[in-house]
Design a protein around this nucleic acid. Structure first.
Lengths: 334, 334
DNA sequence: GCCCGCTTTGACAACGTTATCAGATCAGTG
DNA sequence: CACTGATCTGATAACGTTGTCAAAGCGGGC
């Protein structure tokens, strides 16, 4: 039997309102009373009903994290970070998948908010860039924050890493090893990070005085298969690249497979770089040189901004890190 | 402004009770009235408050999935399966991490139930085998189901795959290729699956008339590092194995790395098998021979049992599948 | 025309909290 | 010894739904 606040009140010999005061740490409760109530709470193992609370105060002490991302790794870590900050602040996290391509997308999010009384939203890529949703949230005055937005910045607080700088860094690192023909596999078009990473690649080439060869830039979809296909095409070129920079680790794994399959040794004959530093980067052979993206910290910080009531202009830039492992080396001499 | 049931009632010209009837699809509402109410609901985009519902009926229409598993892949798929069945049945899923080693473990779960009014629980490994929790849930009369339990079966419905049979199958497959020295890397001790898979390995050896060599059985922890360490030790033996069966894919990835590092070719000089068929199994080179475990379906079916009110003795056995890829081959002739 | 039972409807009290406001208690002050 | 203001406490009304129960409407059989 679930104990209620009435049971606590009865046991402590006070009114339910006084119990409520103790639970919410309000002032104006005498020391003795507070102690008696706390003892009763302990004894009965009483836990207030979130439903009743949500109804009584306007706010539910719940926030929702929205995602539409097929990567278990990304989703898991984003969730963990958001959940952690929620727990610290006494909030509960609603972890909600959605479908940005559905015609009902905005309606479904609206339904979620109304049903759950969510106090705020955290948008992860690619949900973070759905203009229709942003408009609706503004209109409703629902607080929200975004992780790694690509457009409409400035309408709400957000966290991000500098994808352009990171991709530039990786490209220059490869060039610095001596590579002159560096290929690039672009990510999924729905993600703004795909554009930024491509831009970083181009800036890197330029900084190193290398001309971009359009044949070396392939469209991918941030998944294993598309990376593999891109690599197969690249490696069959008359003048194949000596390095392939895949703009996430899943695609890099595809590149590695394609190379192995063709009997091309990594890193001796081909350098491969990834991006994200997922579990897979360490598990592959050779372990992948990649950009470490602090997914968990991004979500943690975003949640912090949301619950801290940060003003719209607040921005938090987190550090990325170039992680050099065994999949990259200077090109073979000819 | 969130519309309430009163607004709908006013617009449709009926009482709030009648609106409630329409929302809950109760009988005894005339056709015309029902239509008018539905139109008002549409027009106002009304969504009933789950909090108010939970309070008014006894049940919250929420169930919680408990996990304490460091594998993003497993967690992601379990979640997806449970969420899918929940959505189909109009339930919401509370996805809750917990810490089975905490002294407050049971208290925290109890708190969760009381706070959220959760109607039931789904326990995934290794939470599924926490005897103290099972006792408490029984005592409280909270409905629950388990995924892949290893003990106390029969106290609640559960779903599982036959780990013993699957591991036997893999072992016999390797023996069938001609391997005589087949090593095994055991999983984490907190998981009953680790024991079952070891048992299956032994049954497989026996069925093939092979004696178990204790030097070929290594303890792991279901993670990359422990697989790698185990493989390093195994491959330095005077008479190394010609095949290594790691009892999950993460450990198998570690085995693959260790072999590559020592310049041992897979599958020519060493066969490697995994278990689970995670994304990683396909992404590795060579792609991993493994056992496909239908994690998503296990969670889906478990949720179905919970919400369908299945009697305690109900059990659902799902199919595993031996997936043969490039990491296994007959041993090299000497 | 009347009664019976079934369908349809609504008033009102829950559910478990918090918010509002007023009352009670208690020092300290003139 | 009142008087004042601060501190403490509790009755009661919300919050947005559903459950209970009674009443009104309606068609059919005698």
């Amino acid at each position: 039997m679930r104990p209620t606040i009435r049971d606590v009140a009865a046991m402590a010999g006070v009114s339910i309102k006084t119990v409520s005061r103790v639970l919410n740490n309000e002032a104006h409760v005498s020391k003795g009373t507070r102690r008696r109530v706390q003892e009763a709470v302990e004894a009965l193992r009483f836990r207030p009903s979130m439903a009743a609370r949500a109804l009584a105060r306007g706010r539910s002490h719940q926030v929702a994290l929205l995602y539409d991302n097929p990567s278990p790794y990304y989703v898991y870590h984003a969730q963990t970070g958001a959940r952690e900050r929620c727990r610290e602040l006494g909030f509960r996290l609603i972890f909600q998948e959605c479908d940005i391509r559905s015609s009902e997308f905005v309606a479904e999010v609206r339904a979620l908010i109304d049903e759950t009384h969510a106090d705020g939203l955290i948008l992860s890529p690619p949900v973070t860039d759905q203009a229709a949703l942003l408009t609706e949230l503004k209109r409703r005055n629902t607080p929200f924050v975004r992780i790694a937005p690509g457009n409409n910045k400035g309408i709400c607080p957000y966290t991000y890493i500098d994808d352009v700088a990171a991709a530039t860094e990786m490209t220059r690192y490869l060039a610095g090893l001596g590579h002159r023909r560096i290929a690039f596999v672009v990510g999924h078009a729905a993600h703004s990070s795909a554009r930024d990473r491509l831009r970083g690649y181009r800036k890197g080439l330029e900084a190193e005085g290398l001309a971009e060869d359009p044949a070396l830039v392939r469209q991918g979809r941030y998944d294993y298969e598309s990376g593999r296909t891109a690599a197969q095409e690249l490696l069959e070129l008359g003048r194949p690249p000596t390095a392939i920079f895949a703009s996430n680790d899943d695609m890099a794994a595809g590149v590695v497979s394609a190379a192995h399959e063709l009997g091309i040794r990594i890193p001796e004959e081909l350098s491969v770089a990834g991006y994200d530093d997922t579990d897979m980067a360490r598990a592959l052979w050779p372990p992948l040189t990649t950009i470490h993206q602090p997914t968990r910290a991004l979500a943690y910080a975003a949640t912090d901004l949301l619950l801290g009531g940060a003003p719209p202009a607040t921005v938090r830039l987190l550090e990325h890190r170039l992680v050099i492992r065994g999949s990259t080396a200077p090109p073979a001499k000819r």
